[in-house]
């Protein structure tokens, strides 16, 4: 049976997030030829509607309200449930993002349905869709499906499901008016700690530093290489604990789980907790002075050497060819 699938579209710094396009691609598979309806919530978001159509949404519903300017589970919860009531979807897809992680359990609870979070792959289509997700911090995987009839609800991990080709298409963008009341959380301020532009969890390239970086300044050559490649800088817990960088950069079991196309680990020994956060990256490069370092065991390519020699040379070499 084909399904009607709702997808939550998300914006960040004035642009749609890639994970929303990936979520549409996931929704297409789950729909089994049914309809994919993207949902945009915010203060002023209707301009983004057509872009979601270009990436495969059949139509878009926007809910605009001053109370939706910042995400709150109450505000977004009321708005999304109003769309659910109107559309009666058979499936829902969110990105496994800060918003998706926070909101999806609330919606699943209200719908009294199962929620399959942090999905990295989908096998089969429509009613036969089975969802693959990492468990034990990526040390194993499980295949999960909904047990009985009900709303199929999944969140998809950024960078894992390929978005559809962008093409000019037409689809209806309509608005739904929702009364948003009684917000129990008031957002006061957001302090930007992450680097401008590239979000670590969605970055295609990550240059990560460990204790071998030795100081705050030691991260500068890594940042330079990341900027050149359009990537982001990450860190091991060791580097964060030593106060070389902010915990917001930490990759690992505690910290972020990332799956970029290219992960360059510089001066990281490869503690098992760190590997849990990055071992599913597509290509891993290890740079470490210690040829016995654990990180070489998961690396596709390794250079035994001092990161302060290797990283600047790498930047120069990439500059030549790019």
């Amino acid at each position: 049976m084909s399904k009607k699938v709702l997808v939550l579209g998300e914006t960040r710094e004035g642009a749609l997030r890639n994970v929303s396009f990936e979520a549409i691609a996931a929704a297409k598979k789950i729909s089994g030829g049914g309809e994919v309806v993207a949902v945009l919530l915010g203060e002023s978001v209707s301009d983004f509607g057509n872009e979601l159509v270009a990436y495969g949404a059949d139509r878009v519903i926007t809910v605009e309200h001053p109370h939706l300017k910042s995400y709150t589970s109450d505000g977004y919860g009321q708005a999304f449930m109003a769309v659910v009531d109107q559309e009666q979807p058979e499936a829902i897809v969110f990105g496994h993002t800060a918003v998706g992680k926070d909101l999806s359990p609330k919606i699943a609870s209200k719908l009294q349905t199962g929620l399959i979070s942090d999905v990295t792959d989908i096998e089969g289509e429509g009613d036969d869709a089975v969802f693959i997700r990492p468990i034990y911090s990526g040390k194993a995987f499980e295949k999960v499906k909904l047990k009985e009839d009900g709303v199929v609800f999944v969140t998809v991990r950024p960078n894992n499901i390929a978005p559809l080709e962008r093409e000019e298409r037409s689809g209806d963008v309509s608005s739904l008016s929702v009364d948003i009341t009684n917000l129990r959380t008031i957002i006061k301020n957001v302090v930007r700690k992450s680097a401008e532009g590239v979000d670590l969890s969605e970055a295609k390239v990550i240059i990560a530093g460990g204790r071998g970086v030795k100081s705050k300044e030691g991260f500068e050559p890594l940042q330079e290489l990341a900027d050149l490649l359009g990537g982001a800088v990450g860190a091991s817990r060791g580097a964060c604990d030593a106060d070389y960088c902010d915990y917001s950069l930490q990759i690992g079991q505690t910290g972020k789980v990332v799956t970029p196309d290219l992960y360059i680990a510089a001066g990281i020994s490869g503690a098992i907790q760190h590997m849990a956060g990055m071992s599913n990256s597509k290509v891993i490069v290890a740079i470490n002075k210690d040829p016995e370092a654990n990180i070489f065991k998961v690396a596709d390519y390794g250079i035994v050497g001092d990161l302060f020699d290797v990283i600047p040379l790498l930047t120069e070499e990439f500059k030549k060819v790019m």
Partner: peptide, 24 residues
Amino acid sequence: AKTETIEVYLPPKKEAGRILEGEI
């Protein structure tokens, strides 16, 4: 339970990577 785990498996073993050689 609303969901059902059909299978649990380990990721495919990664082949040993290549340690490059020569001058840096």
